[in-house]
């Protein structure tokens, strides 16, 4: 059994993770004219296009979803958050190869730090979301906001778990990023992001909500807009599932991170 004893390998994980995250944030829009304006502009542009298409053509607004633009924006932001966090997490070890091969940093800090960028961006976009809620005159209840934050955190844990699970394998198989890109769009269309769940026949609801992303998107916007929540046991089952996924992902990560430096 190979083993390695050390008094301490590193003393300030928190600072390390934050530094990696900050560095990423700095590099993100470097070299672009609008810079950080893109953080807000990108989801707004997406929203404008989708809102135009789906409000005027499919007319969700007048068929039982009066606050369709709010639902769309909330779901879009959550989706963008999830897709960005998983994508950067998946590629984190390869993109930060210099921290893997030239020096020792606990590898999990690299993965975690990389995903945090998406969290920052999401946080900034929430300000825009709040302004939209005010504009449409729909002030969410305290419970709705609290649940939204809980769901956002759960989504982040899910994204981090995915990153831990896949990052060491992306080093070996670079196709994973392309595969995940495709799967992300599958996930988007299989979840109530651009359409409300209610537009589907009721018999499909349970199947769709088995997908944790769909569950989170659906109930976070339901909570914010309609003050409508899931049952306690459904919620607990999802929390347990995500926590379990996180633990398994981390264990897998610890097993496979060992050879990462040789393979990059």
């Amino acid at each position: 059994m190979p083993s390695r004893f050390m008094t301490k390998s590193h003393e300030n994980y928190r600072e390390l993770v934050m530094r990696i995250a900050k560095t990423d944030f700095k590099l993100r829009y470097h070299g672009s004219v609008l810079g950080y304006v893109w953080v807000i502009l990108k989801p707004l542009l997406m929203f404008t296009i989708l809102n135009f298409v789906f409000s005027s053509i499919f007319n969700f607004r007048n068929s039982g979803t009066p606050y369709y633009p709010l639902e769309l924006l909330t779901a879009l932001l959550l989706f963008q958050f999830f897709s960005e966090a998983t994508m950067t997490g998946l590629m984190s070890l390869v993109n930060k190869a210099q921290l893997v091969t030239k020096i020792y940093v606990p590898r999990w800090t690299i993965v975690l730090g990389s995903t945090m960028n998406a969290l920052f961006v999401f946080g900034m976009n929430l300000i825009v979301l709040a302004l939209f809620f005010v504009y449409y005159g729909r002030i969410p209840t305290l419970g709705g906001v609290a649940m939204f934050i809980v769901y956002a955190l759960l989504l982040y844990i899910l994204a981090v778990a995915f990153s831990f699970l896949t990052a060491p394998f992306y080093v070996r198989f670079r196709d994973l990023s392309t595969i995940w890109e495709v799967l992300l769009s599958v996930i988007m269309y299989a979840s109530p992001v651009i359409y409300p769940l209610t537009s589907l026949p009721v018999r499909y609801w349970q199947i769709i909500l088995l997908n944790p992303f769909a569950f989170i998107v659906n109930y976070s916007k339901q909570g914010l807009i309609n003050n409508n929540y899931t049952t306690f046991w459904h919620f607990m089952a999802m929390v347990a599932g995500i926590v379990l996924a996180g633990v398994i992902a981390f264990l897998v990560f610890r097993k496979y991170e060992k050879t990462v430096a040789e393979l990059i």
């Binding site: 390695r4 004893f5 050390m6 008094t7 590193h10 003393e11 091969t101 020792y104 040789e262």
Partner: peptide, 18 residues
């Protein structure tokens, strides 16, 4: 020793920060 690679076999004991 720096922790970049992991040994296949053997014991490494490091006392202090590297």
């Amino acid at each position: 020793l720096a922790g970049v690679y992991t040994a296949n076999k053997g014991v490494i004991n490091i006392n202090g920060l590297v």
